[in-house]
Design a protein around this nucleic acid. Structure first.
Length: 538
RNA sequence: GGCCCCAUCGUCUAGUCAGGUCCAGGACAUCGGCCUUUCACGCCGACGACGCGGGUUCAAAUCCCGCUGGGGUCACCA
């Protein structure tokens, strides 16, 4: 190791780090970003990288999402040493399979009076919260159940009365959170809430599960996003209550949208599927990610993961939140592509199409529309790109406005936008991602918007395919996949909102208009010049 | 709003910890040019930043304080 991390403490025990995604949606770029730094740190110290699934939210977690996350991290080449699929000596690696552990640990905390049972109803909590808000003070649990006699509380619990278990946070003093990049961050204990550790469904919250698991799995460094830093005093308190040595905390800066807010699906494609589908090479993607908030000692920008590991020094992380710039990503990707031999490029392109796994589904969709094999590429194009450009067909995004039907209801930009937003909300929640559900969502949204079914479908068709002509709409959306579909629908919303896309569109059209005028003038000049050319004059 | 974090070109960043070699370097984007049958690539060039105000010092992008700005967080979600 040439550069041993200068300011990151490394204990004597083997370095063990983890990525702990919650399987509640599409695989997120932020997950890959944090996984990358964890893996690299583990590798640079010859340690292990653990994948742990934090599926303690029964309502939102799905095995579908878990599978997608595993698949996407693998695509990135961020392979874990231990995890739910590969096993390992510290399993199980799925928190939903570790319930007994959390309950047992909670009992230990209750026994030592570092936690207590709370029987407060959601209604009471809401009232207290409202009162505190009215009084202009911070919301914090008011300690109603904290001083109940533990034996009495236990008796109530034994009768089956629903309750949660809360952390008995000290009401005085301060807690120092030692962050390896920021130094000690000091919190006043009286401002820290009596966090719920065990929910009434018997499953732990993140705070408890993450501390218990990190300890039992012997995690030495917690490298996670900065959004967690404010809950770390609770975690410190837990480590103290258990009598455990806390790991080294390293809070990474948050990835940002162009407006500097925390990266979000509203403003950026955040699904890893999207980047895979739109033809980003995983090695280029990971290279780009490693440039965010980090720089190599010699300012190299293009390097392999192995080189990244070899020169890794987490103390070089800069804490300002980096904007996730897709333009730069594509630049890096282009560099990789151009560095290949033609044979390699051809192979990668073919492999990309192949790994995609939708060949047959797409063939089925475009079959009727390919008079010759030569039209194949053109027909499948919409399935293999991230975004589409609507060009002049954009007017169809205004529902009904491109229609020639007499009965058409023309929705203005706002109402069209609301239809798309409604559709997006439905599709985000749609499980499973299949034709019939998609059709139902589509029909519901268009009907709700009060437009003709056909007009609404046309608007969606243009939004997702970029054209008024496309294969079957529901099947196309199913095949397109959730990630890409949602990015395109959100782009339509942006366009309708008149921000970004609309301006871009206008600028583009103005440029095109100017170009057309110029070429028209030149044509006229050329024609008149030709007109003057009369061979008979010679 | 309370608390916490952060602050160099539009963007990613080097430089900040060990103050002088920085009237601030590189990359992306943008603009101009070259190359070229076109486009792209490539090459050359231009534009462009230490948020503001105090202080410490012979000397501050670098250290200290204040302000401003941005972000995060305040759930029986993670």
């Amino acid at each position: 190791m040439s550069a041993s991390p200068s300011s990151i403490p490394v204990p004597k025990t083997p370095v063990r780090v983890r990525i702990a995604p919650s399987p509640t949606g599409d695989p997120h770029v932020g997950t890959a970003y944090i996984a990358l730094f964890n893996l690299a740190f583990a590798r640079s110290h010859g340690g292990q990288f653990v994948l742990r699934i934090e599926d303690t939210d029964q309502k939102r977690s799905s095995s579908e999402s878990e599978a997608a996350i595993l698949k996407s991290l693998s695509w990135c080449g961020l392979q874990w040493d231990e995890g739910p699929d590969v096993g390992g000596p510290y399993g199980p690696y799925r928190q939903s399979e570790r319930s007994d552990l959390y309950i047992a640990h909670c009992e230990q905390l209750i026994a030592s009076a570092r936690a207590y049972r709370c029987f407060c109803s959601a209604e009471r909590l809401t009232e207290v919260r409202a009162a505190q808000r009215a009084a202009g003070v911070d919301w914090r649990y008011d300690g109603h159940c904290r001083n109940h006699d533990p034996a009495a509380s236990k008796a109530r619990a034994d009768t089956g009365e629903t309750h949660v278990i809360r952390l008995a946070m000290p009401t005085e003093g301060t807690t120092a959170v030692p962050d390896a990049l920021r130094g000690a961050v000091i919190y006043d204990n009286h401002r820290v809430d009596d966090q719920i550790l065990l929910k009434s469904d018997g499953l732990p919250t993140y705070h408890l599960a993450n501390v218990v698991d990190d300890h039992l799995m012997e995690i030495t460094h917690v490298i996670r996003a900065e959004e967690w830093i404010n809950s770390t005093p609770k975690h410190m308190e837990l480590y103290d209550a258990f009598g455990w040595e806390p790991p080294v905390f390293i809070h990474m800066p948050l990835l940002r949208n162009a407006d500097k807010s925390k990266i979000s699906k509203r403003k950026n494609p955040v699904s890893l599927d999207y980047y895979q589908r739109s033809g980003i090479l995983p090695e280029a993607f990971v290279n780009f990610l490693s440039l965010l908030g980090y720089s190599m000692p010699d300012e190299r920008e293009v390097f392999t993961f192995a080189e990244f590991v070899a020169d890794l020094d987490l103390s070089r992380i800069s804490l300002g939140g980096p904007v996730f710039d897709r333009v730069k990503l594509e630049h890096i990707n282009g560099l990789y592509l151009r560095a290949m031999t033609p044979a390699q490029l051809a192979n990668r392109a073919a492999a990309w199409l192949e790994e995609d796994g939708r060949q047959e589904a797409i063939a089925e969709l475009v079959q009727e529309r390919v008079p010759t094999l030569a039209s194949w590429n053109q027909q499948i194009d919409m399935f293999h790109r991230g975004t589409v450009s609507w060009g002049e067909d954009a007017r169809h995004l205004l529902v009904g406005c491109g229609s020639r039907k007499k009965k058409s209801v023309r929705l203005d930009a706002k109402r069209s936008r609301l239809m798309f937003e409604d559709l997006i909300a439905q599709l985000e929640a749609l499980k499973p991602w299949q034709r019939d559900g998609i059709e139902a969502a589509l029909r519901a949204s268009v009907t709700k918007a009060g437009a003709l079914i056909g007009d609404g479908f046309m608007a969606v068709r243009v939004a997702i395919s970029g054209s008024t002509a496309s294969p079957g709409l529901f099947e196309s959306i199913e095949t397109l996949g959730r990630a890409v579909t949602l990015v395109r629908l959100r782009a339509a919303v942006d366009w309708l909102r008149g921000k970004g896309h609309l301006e871009t569109e206008i600028a583009g059209l103005e440029k095109r208009l100017a170009a057309l005028r110029t070429s028209q003038e030149r044509l006229i000049e050329a024609q008149s010049a030709g007109g003057r050319f009369d061979p008979r004059e010679n």
